[in-house]
């Protein structure tokens, strides 16, 4: 039916536009530079969508897309400066929701092999995942790592004696008091 076809086409366009908007959003959050890829190159926008639906509700992606629209223009259609303004607006208006979006994006980004590779190129020994390799670290060397000082003290059991708390009466006033043991 012609009506259904038009509706399906519109829906397809909307889905595409939403995907483009999410990609544009993650690139505003994490643009690329000479070493690091832009977030959309890592698929962070797709993972963001999954995580939004899993943890913020089934309609969370649509809610985000709606929050990013500016005067009925999709986020993907905005100029770069305008996108930044819109993200700042979202950050101010919905700080908790924005914090989730940012965290989900950051985590998605830093788990991607391209980004892990970039972290390594900074000179860090950094694994794709903690195991199975772990990290090689020099064992504790008593000559280098052991404390050389003799600082530190403790009160022995029989040295524990009542302290004068009268200067703290106002602070501690309403607290219950306990007797000393007879041991």
């Amino acid at each position: 039916m012609p009506g259904n076809k038009r509706s399906a086409k519109t829906e397809s366009l909307n889905v595409r536009k939403a995907s483009e908007s999410l990609a544009a959003l993650v690139d505003v959050l994490l643009p690329g530079d000479s070493l690091f890829p832009a977030a959309s190159q890592t698929g962070a926008h797709q993972m963001l969508a999954e995580r939004l639906r899993a943890h913020q509700g089934a309609d969370a992606v649509e809610r985000l897309i709606a929050s990013l629209a500016d005067e009925r223009r999709a986020f993907a259609d905005l100029a770069p400066d305008q996108r930044i303004k819109v993200v700042r607006r979202l950050e101010r208006a919905e700080p908790n929701f924005f914090a989730f979006v940012r965290a989900a994006t950051y985590f998605a980004y830093y788990q991607h092999p391209l980004v892990v590779r970039a972290v390594r190129r900074l000179g860090h020994d950094y694994n794709d995942a903690p195991q199975p390799d772990g990290y090689s670290m020099p064992a504790f060397d008593p000559q280098v790592n052991a404390p050389q000082h003799r600082r530190g003290f403790y009160k022995k059991t029989d040295e524990v004696a009542p302290v004068d708390t009268s200067s703290l009466d106002e602070l501690l006033g309403e607290l219950p008091r306990y007797p000393t043991s007879q041991q």
């Binding site: 009160k155 524990v160 004696a161 009542p162 306990y178 000393t180």
Partner: peptide, 13 residues
Amino acid sequence: RPSDFRKGTEHGY
């Protein structure tokens, strides 16, 4: 530490 077991004696709170 040993004094952790003696707070009643130490300050009574």
